[in-house]
Design a protein around this nucleic acid. Structure first.
Length: 601
RNA sequence: GGCCCCGUGGUGUAGCUGGCCCAACACGCCACCCUGUCAAGGUGGAGAUCGGCGGUUCGAAUCCGCUCGGGGUCGCCA
């Protein structure tokens, strides 16, 4: 009687026992009369030996198998002959002497070798994702992700959270991201949306007396894809009644900390630092600062209040800012780099350009040096702390632009100059986000969402200076990546009404869009707040992967396609008719052209 | 919608200041040899017209234009 053993589990202590292993052919070494087959399953690889004395059917299998064939091998474990142990393998001290082997499945030559760690074109990986999944990287990542999710659920349960599943067919709301629409068959001319988040439902759970809600929730947003954005993504969604910021922070630190330890084996020091939105912009030029390194920005607007340098003077006169970043001597970028990628980083983020100066023992050098007065240069040196050999980069413009541009330069500098310790993670809370942001067409819109509670001190500015109103919204940021956001919510109808008015929404509009929520809030709504954390991004950072595609089993390309299934696919006229839709003529033409191109190529 | 990078046999690359390239190297693949290898080894072999279309040229993988695809990024992402 033999039992299944995982390939990677065999050890010298198993010597003499009969076992059966199942797995894929990882490698094959044929010495003529002697054949080695490395058999792989998720646990690892074991060397199977088939020699000339083996039964003919067994030798036939040894002859026939190729990479990625699926085998069942029965045999006995024995220590390898002295001198032939392989210390690189956990199973390297033993081998499995085959007594019987069965090919359970043959395999075509794979497009890439599973055991070869060299990078493969991402499109090829996605087309053969089921093969890519066999490789070590995705096995490790998906199993770590699993442990992360398991730990989150266990910890949430321990803290008294109840997981509630909310609908995935929900009403469309025009605010925020673009919705994915799902046409209704029974009510032609109407459509569902896939939820961008379970926001409204989880708040209704609060009203429903589920005072600690959580969900590992799938969400959808039809926006352009990025390294850290897919159409569909997974959130740790949390909502808590009778809490303030500190309760939410404590719960999230506990949940993510537990999952981090379980999945990545690393502890996250608590409590996580807090920084206000305003301070983050001031010190880092970003509302998602990478705090793994210092090199903070310095505001030097006042130094150049009366400068003769036109670009600075104009910025100051317009109420803007001049920001500075000191690059220590020894790691100074070259002029070519400054005028190239560094300037490009600043310009991409809206700046007119990137100014720079070198400080020497006997003065300053650089394209703008001669336009600056001795007082200004002295002030710059004093404020930035620049010493001989240092370089100082400067941006000028509207405060938001100058900061964002130099913040981008700071990140580029960090990458180029090796400021980042890749072995650490710096979690922090960014607090006191503004309630509103300006809308291009005039007016304001919510920065977070319209159910966010207003900072207690700022209600008075709601009408007079809405853009100055702070909210009780907060983000989790780690290593310069936004990991999620949340807020303490509004639950009092009159406060909610005031926000809707500030947004320029009429009573009727508010009623038609959110009537059910407003109604719920009139039936005894507990004060509450919560958070939504991006699981994909958390796991990505935890595994030090550069993209969330590396922690998602079946991701899509940047154009939102799936090279494996061919999705999205054309729909038939019948399908459309059933849901009451028709394609516009120009769309039909584009589809036909695409079909031709596909057939021709 | 904008900007940047990339596209050569199954995979990863070289070639890309035009002709020596009907394309080279490594891995993989096929055949044969080989009883201790584990990036096995040896011998031999198959496999790409250089993403697609059009242009410049006596001549293009190499230059130009358009286009498709992949990646990064700005906008966008309450």
């Amino acid at each position: 009687m033999t039992e299944r053993r995982l390939c990677g589990s065999l050890r010298p202590g198993d010597s003499g026992t009969a076992v059966t292993c199942y797995g894929w052919v990882h490698h094959r070494r044929d010495h003529g009369g002697l054949t080695f087959v490395d058999l792989r399953d998720h646990s690892g690889v074991v060397q199977v030996v088939i020699n000339a004395e083996a039964a003919p059917p067994l030798r036939e299998v040894a002859q026939r198998v190729r990479l990625e064939f699926v085998l069942r091998v029965r045999g006995s474990v024995r220590p390898r002959p002295a001198g032939s142990e392989n210390p690189q393998l956990p199973t390297g001290a033993v081998e499995l002497v085959a007594e019987e082997a069965e090919v359970l499945a043959a395999a075509e030559t794979p497009p890439f070798v599973i055991g070869d760690p060299r990078p493969v074109d991402e499109q090829v990986r996605l087309r053969y994702r089921y093969l890519d999944l066999r490789r070590e990287r995705l096995q490790r990542n998906l199993r770590a992700r699993h442990r992360f999710l398991m730990a989150l659920r266990a910890e949430a349960d321990r803290l008294g959270f109840v997981e509630v599943e909310t609908p995935t067919l929900v009403p469309s709301t025009p605010e925020g991201a673009r919705d994915f629409l799902v046409p209704s068959r029974l009510i032609p001319g109407t459509a569902w949306a896939l939820p961008q988040s379970p926001q409204l439902y989880k708040q209704l759970c609060m009203v429903g007396g589920l005072d600690r809600y959580m969900q590992i929730a799938r969400c959808w947003r039809d926006e352009d894809l990025r390294a850290d954005r897919q159409f569909e993504f997974t959130q740790l969604d949390v909502e808590m009644a009778f809490v303030d910021e500190e309760d939410v922070f404590a719960a999230l630190e506990q949940l993510i900390g537990a999952a981090w330890g379980a999945a990545f084996g690393r502890a996250l020091p608590r409590p996580w630092p807090r920084i206000s939105y305003r301070e983050a912009l001031e010190r880092y030029g970003s509302d998602k600062p990478d705090t793994r390194f210092g090199h903070e920005l310095v505001t030097v607007t006042d130094v150049f209040a009366a400068t003769g340098l036109r670009v600075f003077a104009d910025a100051v006169a317009a109420g803007g800012a001049v920001r500075a970043l000191r690059i220590p001597a020894g790691e100074r970028p070259t002029r070519r780099e400054l005028d190239g990628p560094w300037r490009e980083a600043a310009v991409t983020h809206g700046a007119a350009g990137l100014a720079y100066l070198w400080r020497w023992a006997d003065g300053w050098e650089g394209p703008i040096a001669r336009h600056l007065s001795a007082t200004e240069l002295a002030g710059l040196g004093q404020r930035t702390g620049a010493e001989a050999g240092d370089c100082v980069c400067l941006t000028a413009g509207p405060a938001a632009v100058a900061g964002a541009a130099l913040g981008a330069v700071r990140l580029l500098a960090a990458r180029e100059l090796g400021w980042i310790d890749g072995e650490v993670e710096h979690f922090l809370w960014v607090t006191e986000f503004p309630m509103f942001e300006p809308e291009p067409s005039g007016g304001v819109r919510p920065l977070h969402h319209p159910f966010t509670q207003v900072h207690a001190d700022d209600w008075g500015k709601l009408e007079s200076d809405p853009l100055a109103v702070r909210s009780r919204a907060y983000d989790i940021v780690c290593n310069g990546v936004e990991m999620g956001s949340g807020s303490i919510r509004i639950t009092r109808p009159e406060q909610q009404g005031a926000i809707f008015r500030a947004l320029g929404m009429t009573e009727a509009e508010a009623q038609s869009k959110f009537g059910f929520l407003l109604s719920a809030f009139r039936h005894g709504a507990p004060p509450h707040g919560g958070f939504a954390a991006g699981i994909d991004r958390l796991v990505m950072v935890g595994l030090r992967e550069p993209s969330i595609r590396e922690v998602i089993a079946f991701p899509k390309t940047q154009t939102g396609a799936d090279p494996m299934t061919g999705a999205p696919t054309a729909v038939t006229a019948d399908q459309l008719r059933e849901v009451g839709l028709a394609l516009r003529p120009e769309v039909t033409a584009v589809r036909a052209a695409a079909a031709d191109a596909g057939a021709g190529g």
